[in-house]
Simulated scan of single mutants.
Amino acid sequence: MSSENQANSKSKVAIVTGGGRGLGRNTVVSLARRGVDVILTYNTNKAEAESAVAEIEAAGARAVALQLDTGNAGSFDAFVANVRQALETFGAKDFDYLVNNAGTSYHASIAETTEEAFDGLVNVHLKGVFFLTQKLLPLMADGGRIINISSGLARFSVPGSSAYAAMKGAVEVFTRYLAKEFGARGITANTVAPGAVMTDFSGGIVRDNPVVNKMVSDMTALGRPGVADDIGPMIASLLSEDNRWVNGQRIEVSGGAAL
């Protein structure tokens, strides 16, 4: 267990949505290596979530995987009840960190974007983040930390990403309001905006498509796309006491994309 957690009377507990795969999985394992216990969520891939739990436990922390569709706000009350039960298994009454990571991709021009697809993005990336955070805040310990995942696409424009990027821009505004409204409780809120990362997100297009991979490499100062190990440890670090005075900020982790 890390020296940070040894200094506290109880282990920290994090909730990470979409923690079974990709950046979410790297984040939960990075937190576990710092002695943080994890409640992770998955939508449909239970096997991957259980694999992540095993990896967290191998790192010396405790973990529970809970099913959650972040696009279905009507399920959030039941989810919160499940979180309470999971916390009891940890011997805790509250949790410390919330990482709103779960998301879906969508690629279409403005002219071709459908209302149905737009509404789906709203439900997952904006409405879901807003109301899940609202429902969980009463269970968050004073002095807690919130990280909402945005995207480099909220700063620079790549045709075909307008609807997705608009949701992330809205989340960045929401994050600043969280920081302001819950500062009295000592809760910080920040946005982490990854650049293009070689995971299975968006069908693995950055990882598996040589043309896209080269395009990303050419527009990035460090000359390559990101990997999950570039992001998860950074999020874990941002949640730690080392960054307690960082609040209301958008931090892009893109290797210097589109500078």
Rank of each mutant, 00 (worst) to 15 (best):
M1K: 10
N5Y: 03
S9R: 09
G18N: 03
G20I: 14
L31I: 05
A32H: 05
T41M: 05
N43M: 08
N43L: 12
V64N: 02
G71P: 08
N72D: 14
A81G: 09
A81S: 14
R84V: 12
R84I: 10
Q85L: 09
A86R: 00
A102C: 03
Y106Q: 09
H107R: 13
S109H: 09
T113G: 05
F118S: 13
G120I: 01
L121N: 11
V124H: 03
L132Q: 01
P138I: 06
G143M: 00
R145L: 10
R145S: 14
N148V: 01
S150V: 02
A154L: 13
P159W: 14
P159D: 07
Y164Q: 09
A165C: 07
A166C: 11
M167F: 00
F174W: 02
Y177G: 03
A179I: 05
K180D: 13
A184H: 14
A184L: 13
A189N: 06
P194K: 09
P194N: 07
A196L: 08
F201A: 06
F201M: 06
G204K: 15
V211I: 15
N213F: 10
K214E: 15
V216S: 00
P233T: 07
L238A: 06
S240Y: 05
D242S: 14
W245H: 12
Q249V: 14
V253A: 07
